[in-house]
Design a protein around this nucleic acid. Structure first.
Length: 501
DNA sequence: TCTGGGGTCCTAGGACCC
DNA sequence: TCTGGGGTCCTAGGACCC
């Protein structure tokens, strides 16, 4: 059995904002999306005030003022750096850290609890004892399908006889943790949570289970109960604890069950994670898709979402922004797109990938019922994948000139690097016609050296110290960010000052 | 007045092949 | 009464994640 952990930072962006402001420790803090649009993170105190995730700023402004809520614009330089520190800390316990998002990482801790033959320590010695004492009364409480959700199983009820398997059939007793291993896991979990908090200032929750989906579910449970109990980790290994806890977990909280799937699951009478775990995987595949089938299997303890030993190369990369003010001239739109394209090319170089094509899109305000709604986009392929700013940029600007309509008030635009491939793959790809008529070899070499110098300068003197003039000197389209905190850890000028009294 | 950004995966259906 | 079988590739759209 694998020991998979999911470490999830609590209210990550809000917690980051609190790290360098101890005076905000107990104050409600919310962090806004780009353009100061809506709430994307809330401290526990802000959640307690009833501020909803995704609430537009203008709707909560009055409440925020009255309740003394600290409102911050997003500061991704700060969050990214603190995230990196959290991940770095995790390396103390295992080299198998799989960063899933800016505030979450999967850990494969199996090795820590195995002996030299790769078996969980204490497996043999304690299994006997466990089966005698632990499992004596059978899996009490479960009386077959009827007892689970009452009536109203509807369609699922009909497949129930053949389709719904008894819990015992997929929770074999040999999937039980030896008691010594369990104690070790609990000790390690507490240590991880406490160390990360002390070293980075970020409060975290840790869920542990034999699969990623169960680890995710466990982290939800740890978050739910952690505030009250102070125990910021949870385990979902043994059949009894899985049954007990999954019955208390709403099906919508399961990883992979989103807004659209939830109503369909409700119609089937699936209310809890436990209900979902009992559905026949084949039924799920037939009526939904292979993704939902995998979710069911994972809830049963069967691993289907594997950590990739070598992660797949990224397939696309996009930079887009909503504008602070509407853009109504081609010159302004060119500046915005140029800036996005420059950023995208620089990011590709940093990640050592190159784009096979570029897609530019722009849209008007889709929410204004009185204004014309428009959503346009256009793509073009390169003769050979590129991450050179001049080439990527000029293609993006050509598309912009084709797309732009001066009669409309544009609200947002974006640039997508399409079908990104590894840089080395791109370099080895042959042209159909050699030499490339658009970009002769000397020109490409000059571009390459230019980009190299550009990246070097910007690494030394800060982002966008040197940039293409087409980005604009004083852009008017830049998103609102009226409440940004200092980039304490990534900008020399923003270092926090400590005064001795 | 004011509502984000950046990804991935899967399926269905059409075009095309033999 | 009656319309082959089996495959690949591509794209748009929908779902999910944070």
């Amino acid at each position: 059995m694998k020991i998979i952990g999911l470490l999830d930072c609590d209210s990550f962006f809000a917690s980051c904002e609190k790290v360098f402001r101890p005076d905000w420790a107990n104050r409600p803090v919310v962090v806004l999306s780009n353009n100061d649009g809506c709430v994307v993170a809330r401290s526990p105190e802000a959640k307690a005030l009833g501020i909803a995730m995704g609430a537009p700023l203008f709707q909560i402004r009055e409440l925020a003022r009255r309740a003394g809520v600290v409102v911050r614009s997003g500061n991704f330089a700060l969050y990214g750096d603190l995230s990196r520190r959290v991940v770095e800390t995790l390396g103390r316990w295992t080299p198998n850290v799989d960063v899933y998002s800016i505030d979450e990482a999967f850990l494969d801790l199996t090795g820590r609890f195995c002996d030299s033959s790769g078996r969980l320590r204490g497996d043999d010695a304690e299994k006997e004892e466990e089966t005698e004492t632990g499992n004596g009364g059978g899996l009490g409480g479960l009386r077959g399908l009827d007892g689970v959700s009452g009536g109203g199983l509807g369609e699922l009820g009909r497949i129930g006889k053949s389709g719904c398997v008894d819990w015992r059939e997929f929770c074999a007793s040999d999937e039980r943790l030896p008691a010594t291993t369990r104690r070790e896991i609990e000790r390690t979990a507490a240590e991880i949570v406490e160390t990360v908090r002390r070293w980075t200032g970020i409060p975290v929750s840790l869920g542990l289970g034999p699969t990623r989906t169960l680890a995710k579910a466990a982290s939800r449970i740890a978050k739910r109960d952690g505030a009250a109990t102070g125990r910021k980790f949870a385990l979902l290994f043994d059949p009894e604890e899985r049954e007990r806890e999954l019955k208390r977990l709403p099906v919508g909280d399961v990883w992979g069950v989103g807004r659209r799937l939830l109503p369909a699951f409700w119609r089937l009478g699936l209310r809890t994670a436990f209900d979902l775990a009992r559905v026949d995987p084949i039924y799920m595949r037939k009526n939904f898709s292979i993704v939902q089938e995998k979710t069911v299997r994972e809830l049963r303890g069967e691993r289907t979402f594997d950590s990739k030993t070598r992660p797949e190369a990224q397939k696309s990369l996009q930079i887009s922004r909503s504008f602070g003010a509407t853009v109504e001239t081609l010159a302004e739109m060119e500046e915005a797109v140029s800036s996005f394209a420059s950023t995208a090319a620089a990011k590709m170089r940093a990640r050592k990938i190159a784009a096979s094509g570029v897609y530019v899109y722009m849209s008007t305000n889709g929410r204004d019922p009185n204004a014309p709604r428009r959503n346009v986009g256009l793509a073009v392929n390169f003769a050979r994948p590129t991450n050179s700013t001049p080439e990527f940029l000029s293609a993006a600007l050509r598309l912009t000139r084709t797309l732009f309509d001066p009669k409309l008030a544009w609200r947002k635009a974006g640039v997508v690097a399409l079908e990104t491939v590894d840089e080395s793959v791109a370099a080895s790809r042959q042209y159909l016609f050699e030499p490339d008529p658009e970009r002769p070899a000397e020109r490409r070499e000059r571009d390459r050296r230019l980009c190299e110098a550009l990246d070097k300068a910007n690494a030394t003197f800060g982002k966008k110290s040197v940039f293409f003039a087409s980005d604009g000197i004083q852009p008017r389209w830049t998103p609102n960010a009226r409440f940004v905190s200092p980039s304490y850890t990534t900008d020399w000028n923003a270092l926090p000052v400590v005064r001795a009294n």
